Simulated assay, not measured.
Amino acid sequence: MTTGPRTIDVPVRLPIKLGQFVKLSGLAETGGMAREAIDAGEVTVNGTTLAHRGHRLAAGDVVQLAGAAPAMRVVDAAGL
């Protein structure tokens, strides 16, 4: 479900770590690719670059890969 012109809602079970979400949302094809993108500073959460793949995301957080559109919004699947 899209919530804006460039943001897609991704329902997940919370809590979820940044690395897991990057892979699950399709921003990266594999966990290794997710790790590389995060370590390289190519992933932002709510507009801030994060380099810690263990960062726990919250409902409403917006995750984006540099140069990739659309952004992905964390949605708590339990609330659906």
Rank of each mutant, 00 (worst) to 15 (best):
S25C: 09
A34T: 08
T2R: 14
H55I: 10
I38V: 12
L80A: 12
R56A: 14
M1I: 09
D9Q: 10
P11N: 00
D76R: 01
Q20S: 15
D9T: 03
V75A: 15
L18D: 01
G67D: 07
L57Y: 08
A58T: 08
M72P: 01
Q64K: 10
G4Y: 01
H55M: 14
H52G: 09
G26A: 13
P11V: 04
K23W: 11
A37N: 10
L24R: 08
D39A: 15
K23V: 08
A40Q: 09
E36N: 08
T3H: 02
G79A: 15
A78P: 02
A69T: 12
K23L: 14
V43S: 05
H55D: 14
P70M: 04
A28W: 10
S25P: 03
E29N: 13
T3I: 15
R6K: 08
L24T: 06
D76A: 07
V74S: 00
Q64E: 08
A40G: 03
A28F: 09
P11Q: 04
T3W: 00
L14A: 05
L65T: 00
M33H: 09
P70A: 07
R56H: 13
G32F: 00
R13C: 04
D9H: 05
T49C: 06
V75I: 14
V75H: 05
P15N: 06
L14R: 02
A51P: 02
G54H: 11
A28S: 13
F21Y: 12
A40L: 11
S25I: 09
G26P: 10
V63N: 04
T2A: 14
A68N: 07
D76M: 02
R73D: 02
G79H: 12
G60S: 12
P5A: 06
H52Q: 10
Q20W: 15
R13D: 07
A40S: 12
K23H: 15
V10H: 06
A59M: 07
